[in-house]
Amino acid sequence: MKKYFGVSRNVFFLGIVSMLNDFSSEMIQAIMPIFLTATLGAPVFVVGLIEGIADALASVLKIVFGWVSDKWKIRKKFAVAGYILSVSTRPFLTLVSSFWHIFFLRSIDRIGKGMRDAPRDALISESTDFDMVGKSFGFHRMMDTFGGMMGPLLVFLLLPVFFGSYQLIFLVAFGIGALAVITFVFVEEPVHKEEKIPVVAPRMNFSFLRSNRRFSLFLFSIFIFGLGTLPIALLLLRAPSIGIDVKYVPIFYLIYHIAFLTAAFPLGKIADSFGRRRIIVLGFFAALVSYISLIFVETFFGLVISFILFGIYSAATDGVERAIAARWVDAHSLAMGQGLLNAAVGISALLAGGIGGLLWTYVSPEATFVYAATLSLVGSLLFIFLLNVRFKDAKEAV
Rank of each mutant, 00 (worst) to 15 (best):
Glu396Ser: 10
Lys392Trp: 08
Met336Phe: 11
Leu358Thr: 04
Ser348Phe: 00
Gly346Met: 07
Ala349Trp: 13
Leu382Val: 03
Met336Asp: 06
Ile324Cys: 04
Val320Thr: 06
Leu334Phe: 13
Leu358Trp: 08
Asp393Trp: 08
Gly353Arg: 05
Leu350Cys: 08
Val363Phe: 15
Gly379Ser: 07
Leu340Ala: 08
Ala331Gly: 11
Ala343Ser: 14
Gln338Met: 14
Trp360Pro: 07
Val370Gln: 12
Ser376Met: 09
Leu386Ala: 06
Gly346Thr: 09
Ser364Ala: 03
Arg322Leu: 15
Gln338Ile: 02
Ala344Tyr: 04
Ile384Met: 13
Arg390Trp: 04
Leu351Trp: 09
Leu350Glu: 10
Arg327Gly: 15
Leu351Asn: 11
Asp393Arg: 01
Ala331Pro: 01
Ile355Asn: 00
Ala352Cys: 06
Asp393Thr: 10
Phe383Ala: 15
Val389Glu: 05
Ala367Cys: 03
Arg327Met: 15
Ala325Tyr: 10
Phe369Gly: 01
His332Gln: 07
Phe369Lys: 02
Lys395His: 15
Val345Gly: 14
Ala323His: 09
Ala323Ser: 14
Leu350Pro: 01
Leu377Thr: 06
Tyr371Phe: 13
Phe383Tyr: 14
Gly354His: 02
Val345Ala: 10
Ala397Arg: 15
Ala394His: 03
Phe383Val: 06
Ala343His: 06
Tyr362His: 03
Asp330Phe: 15
Thr368Glu: 07
Thr374Ser: 13
Ala367Val: 02
Asn342Gly: 14
Leu351Cys: 00
Glu321Gln: 11
Lys392Pro: 00
Leu375Thr: 08
Gly319His: 00
Glu366Phe: 03
Gly346Tyr: 05
Leu351Gly: 00
Lys395Tyr: 15
Ala349Ile: 12
Asp393Gly: 05
Leu382Tyr: 06
Gly356Thr: 05
Ser364Glu: 02
Ser364His: 00
Phe369Asp: 08
Gly356Ala: 12
Leu375Tyr: 13
Ala326Gly: 14
